[in-house]
Write a protein that binds this DNA or RNA. Structure first.
Lengths: 141, 141
DNA sequence: ATTTTTTTTAGAATTATTATAAAGTATTTG
DNA sequence: CAAATACTTTATAATAATTCTAAAAAAAAT
């Protein structure tokens, strides 16, 4: 994530939110900063909320949920479901797959090209395929 | 002991539960009958509980959850996670994949051989692969 | 600056599931 | 078989993740 020296620190994020039709509010900017600075990552609402507390940003848990859902709707995040308990949001929105560590519930990205799929079966009548998820479950050996 | 085929209606299920180390109680037998008679299917706890009510069997929801978990532990069922809200249990315990219909939340089995996977990426150090799930998400077109 | 629209928030509500502990049933033992 | 033991079921409470509500706050439009 390159940052141009001399620019106002949030201007990239402001533009990004505006482009997505979301008002660049204090809380959305704070969350976007945490999410999109640094390398790609996987967060839950609870994790993200914890980080806002650590940083002294005041954002309610409800807003964290709202924001994660909105960011997902506009394509800034991708929602991943691996176990039934909680939802993960992936800042890597490209087409890719996941390792799921059953013990720690941690996710790890697998590059799209590292999983080779043959031709997919035909979708049932009246439907079309919108996404293919491959989850490779791993355990400590 | 000789067993007369077709004599006692529950004897197969009783044997199956016993073999799995589970006492063949009235409620477990009732649930097993619903689950394992007829073709393979995908159920949630709520669905299965609804069916017991329809059949006039009295089984509490807690027991339905307990039983689904126990059946899964002993390999009589396979748990499938596709969206975060609820867990599905699949009476087809063979290695296979799924279509997930986003609109109706319905699952459909895909035969193992209908999804061809190339060589898998190496599991991270200290871990081993225990399962690979392919979920093909479909929507009405 | 005023109005309008959108957003945030605290807290209540919902949903799926698991825990608890008392009562019931199955199995084992004598 | 009956008594003792072990396992199950159940109603209910508890938990956890997430969404809803409606009032207050902030952003954008006028």
């Amino acid at each position: 994530m390159e940052r141009v020296i001399g620019k106002r620190p949030y201007s990239d994020l402001i533009d990004r939110l505006r482009a997505a039709g979301l008002r660049p509010t204090r809380q959305r900017l704070g969350l976007a900063k945490i999410l999109f600075e640094g390398p790609a990552r996987h967060v839950t609402a609870e994790m993200l909320h914890g980080e806002t507390v650590d940083e002294g940003i005041h954002v309610s848990l409800a807003t964290v949920y709202n924001t994660l859902n909105q960011f997902t709707e506009v394509g800034l995040l991708r929602e991943i479901v691996v176990d039934g308990e909680r939802s993960y949001f992936d800042t890597n929105t490209s087409d890719h797959h996941h390792f799921y560590h059953a013990g720690s519930s941690a996710l790890e990205d697998i590059d799209h090209d590292d999983v080779v799929l043959g031709p997919l079966p035909a979708a049932p009548n009246g439907t079309r395929i919108t996404r293919v998820d491959v989850v490779i479950r791993i355990e400590d050996s």
